[in-house]
Structures are given as structure tokens and as C-alpha cells.
């Protein structure tokens, strides 16, 4: 049981970039359709965001994706699903260069990390145990 008084330190949101509107669309999709970003602890959220968006980036950029472990496959299926939806719903993404895509996903990740981890108001994220 956590005490009502514990307040976690919150980090300021990342600075705005020209890609913001696009990133917000992508974020909104994740928020409304995905569950993987909402594991219950900080360390899990960090890993989920990192691994799934890494594979998302690789898929978008046409790079090879490591599928050697069950965990990799699990991150990968969420990434495939996300990439397919992005390509279908946000067709502008299909016109982007590799560099732009890489930057887009980096920005997306920074924003997602903020919303779900560093800027999250969820006081249970830092609990030591499950």
C-alpha cells in the first residue's frame, strides 16, 4: 500500500520540434490502440518503449530485425502491428526518408517516455515489487 503523500519528481516535457503534430498523431494512435506502453513499473515501461520502438524504427526503415529470442518476437509483433497501422492511416509516413523516419521515431519515443514514464503522474511506477 502506498502512502498518499509520496509525490514523484516530474521531468519537464521534451522541447517542441517541427515534427510535433505528426508525432502527436502517432502518439494518439498508440494511446488509443496499444497496451504495451502501460506496463506497471518504470523499468518495464522503459524496456517496452525502447524495444518495441526500436523494432518499429527498423521495420519502417527496412532494416533487419532481431527475432532470436521469444522476447524479441513479442516486441516485434507489437511493432509490426504498429507499423502496419501507421502505414495505412498516416500515409505521409510512407514518403519519408530513412533519416526522417529515424528522427520521427526518436522524437516519438521521447514523447512517449515523457507521457508514460518521466512525466507520468502514476505513483506506483517506482514501486520496487510487482
Amino acid at each position: 500500500m502506498k502512502a498518499a503523500t509520496t509525490k514523484k519528481e516530474r521531468v519537464a516535457p521534451p522541447p517542441a520540434t517541427p515534427m510535433d503534430d505528426k508525432v502527436e498523431e502517432l502518439i494518439d494512435f498508440i494511446m488509443k490502440h496499444c497496451l504495451w506502453q502501460f506496463h506497471s513499473r518504470n523499468w518495464d515501461r522503459e524496456r517496452q518503449n525502447e524495444e518495441i520502438l526500436k523494432k518499429t524504427k527498423q521495420l519502417l526503415c527496412g532494416e533487419p530485425v532481431d527475432l532470436s529470442t521469444p522476447s524479441d518476437r513479442c516486441y516485434w509483433v507489437d511493432a509490426v502491428s504498429l507499423v502496419d497501422a501507421y502505414r495505412e492511416r498516416y500515409t505521409w509516413i510512407n514518403a519519408m526518408s530513412k533519416d526522417e523516419l529515424a528522427q520521427l521515431i526518436d522524437t516519438l519515443k521521447a514523447r512517449l517516455d515523457y507521457l508514460t514514464i518521466s512525466g507520468s503522474l502514476n505513483e506506483e511506477l517506482s514501486d520496487k515489487n510487482y
Partner: peptide
């Protein structure tokens, strides 16, 4: 959700 989130699971 970084702006709006209620307290939860308190006594």
C-alpha cells in the same frame, strides 16, 4: 495523461 490523472488505490 501527464496532465490529468486521478489518485487511485488509496485507503
Amino acid at each position: 495523461i501527464a496532465d490529468a490523472l486521478p489518485q487511485g488505490y488509496l485507503n
